[in-house]
């Protein structure tokens, strides 16, 4: 008998994933078209009087704007097991948003600014109920830029 491992997101309503790939859940202003992540209450553009936002999926592809390698283990609210130094990237999306997220699928010394990336979802740790707790990450893609 094969046991199906349960996977839960590290935070609800932040990203979605399936066999087809992963998406970030954000909002887009119905008036001016500005995008926000995570979901926003309102549009923040001071020139926009519409303000109403709708949920949109985004972030499948992007380009690395900058990155850093975390050498120290962050405080306990962050769980990652086993822990090892890891990279956090700032990723520019085609809709004008820049989003921070962990980088994966790339040796730390191979990370290059402007490299094309795609969204993925990976486990951070296994919780006390035996479920894998998942977060969104960006990984290099061989196919051109977004």
């Amino acid at each position: 008998m094969v046991e199906t491992l349960e996977q839960v997101p590290v935070a609800e309503d932040l990203f979605r994933w399936s066999g087809d790939g992963a998406d970030l859940v954000g909002t887009r202003c119905r008036g001016c078209g500005a995008h926000y992540f995570p979901k926003s209450l309102s549009c923040r553009n001071p020139q926009c009087e519409h303000k109403a936002v709708e949920e949109v999926l985004m972030g499948r592809r992007g380009r690395l704007h900058s990155y850093t390698v975390q050498s120290y283990r962050p405080p306990a609210l962050f769980r990652m097991e086993p822990w090892a130094p890891y990279a956090i990237g700032l990723v520019e999306l085609p809709n004008g948003l820049r989003v921070m997220g962990m980088l994966t699928g790339c040796a730390l010394f191979d990370i290059r600014i402007d490299m094309p990336l795609e969204l993925t979802v990976e486990p951070l740790y296994r919780d006390e109920s035996g479920r894998d707790v998942m977060t969104y990450k960006f990984q290099p893609t061989a196919e051109g830029t977004a």
Binding site: D13, F78, Y136
Partner: peptide
């Protein structure tokens, strides 16, 4: 998700120096 201070910790462990390091690297 309404508290980004919660999100930055649980999703990626982004300490304050991470934000400054992203700027420095850029």
């Amino acid at each position: 998700i309404t508290d980004t201070d919660y999100l930055r910790w649980v999703t990626m462990g982004a300490t304050n120096p991470v934000y400054w390091a992203l700027e420095a690297r850029r």
